[in-house]
Design a protein around this nucleic acid. Structure first.
Lengths: 224, 224
DNA sequence: CACGTTCTGTACTGATCTATCCAATACTCG
DNA sequence: CGAGTATTGGATAGATCAGTACAGAACGTG
């Protein structure tokens, strides 16, 4: 009944509300959807950060009682880890689709990624309509220095995204839409930094037009 | 004996350890330097964030007792506000010098600003030699959404820096080192976002070469 | 030297934090 | 229906949080 067993086992049976996590006889079933609860917790951490989100906040955000939270997610830290993993997964899939889309020229993939960054920045807002930024960036800034697990998660995500970017940038070089002589690695880091900068700018109050002009300007660097 | 009186009055007499804050008769003098204490607190907030820095941490960082901290700085929140103000002031002065340096062409001023950004990222490191980023960026991400005073400070700083950047960019347009047709406002936002992206990248583990390549690539956008 | 004032160390307060305990509950399965 | 098990709500524990109260120490001034 270790934490890792508890966390991994249910993945394949989550859709069935009347089966427990160990394949043994069933008892009292849960009255909530673990995935929805995780989404709510993710959003709470995303909007308010790790330290400023209390377990009480998590109860209110998820609608669960303390017992259910701890029974399901072991600890606040573990819940955060799962929330961050989920966030990274949710963001990675569409980003990979955009950057690996062979139909589009390389430069257009980057442009589409920037556009998506702007859109997500304005899709997900706090209660006051201000930007809540990006959970990955927020975690890097708030937590990564003193939480090795969180640092490992965002580092793995960074490597993955830099790889995707290199693929798209090299495609752009081959199809002629990207003409700069700089190597794909430097360009990937630049594009990634630009996205980070856009997210910080959004949290600092930049509007949609401002973010779009940042993205357009950044694209200029790829075809100087 | 309001907090604001207490905070404002000493500015002109800080150098003299044997004069109190109200111009009245003197009593027991302080055994510490308020400015040094503020620096230590600033560094603690900078390295660990607002929430994760306890008043106990602040006592240890400054070497002061609780009474001295509260007597001098009123509250944790007020101390943070002063630390952030000081940080902004400390960073603004050299940045303004670089961006208003009429000796240099406009593009070179931006290049020098990027170089300085890289340098400060590696000058100020945590105990583990990892990057502690930029207190302004950290505050935008961690605190600005729920602390109006902090938000106002960073917004004022942002306006100031965007203004400086516009000046340098327009100078570059005139002297021919910046050839892009994009308006100075968009370019200023882009340069600012690039710096933010570099700081997040540094916190995510990027080394000096990576930051320099981000800066070099960004400069390409100014002369496409 | 004595007074007035400020500083400082220690103990403390009440609130809040994460996490656990436990009894009551609700369900499946034999 | 009874046995067995997981979930749930509420109470609670123990630590830590920001901030305060207070007494004594340390100084300039008269």
């Amino acid at each position: 009944m270790s934490a890792s067993t508890q966390a991994r086992a249910p993945a394949l049976v989550l859709h069935c509300p009347f089966q427990n996590r160990y394949g043994t006889d069933m008892a009292r079933p849960r009255t909530f959807d673990e995935e929805r609860a995780l989404d709510a917790a993710m959003r709470a951490f995303w909007a308010n950060g790790y330290e400023a989100t209390s377990t009480q906040d998590l109860c209110e955000a998820t609608g669960l009682g303390r017992s259910s939270i701890y029974n399901t997610f072991t600890s606040k830290h573990d819940l955060f880890r799962r929330a961050l993993s989920r966030y990274i997964e949710l963001m990675s899939v569409p980003q990979a689709e955009i950057l690996e889309d062979a139909e589009r020229p390389g430069l257009e993939r980057i442009r589409a990624l920037f556009a998506r960054t702007v859109d997500t920045e304005f899709d997900h807002r706090g209660d006051d309509e201000s930007s809540i930024g990006c959970l990955t960036v927020n975690t890097v800034v708030e937590l990564a220095r003193r939480d090795p697990e969180a640092a490992a998660l965002v580092e793995r995500d960074l490597d993955f995204r830099l790889g995707l970017l290199r693929v798209a940038l090299e495609a752009g070089r081959r199809d002629g839409t990207i003409t700069t002589r700089r190597d794909a690695d430097a360009l990937a880091r630049f594009v990634n930094a630009t996205i980070g900068g856009m997210r910080v700018s959004a949290q600092a109050g930049a509007d949609r037009a401002a973010l779009e002009s940042i993205a357009d300007t950044a694209l200029d660097a790829l075809r100087p």
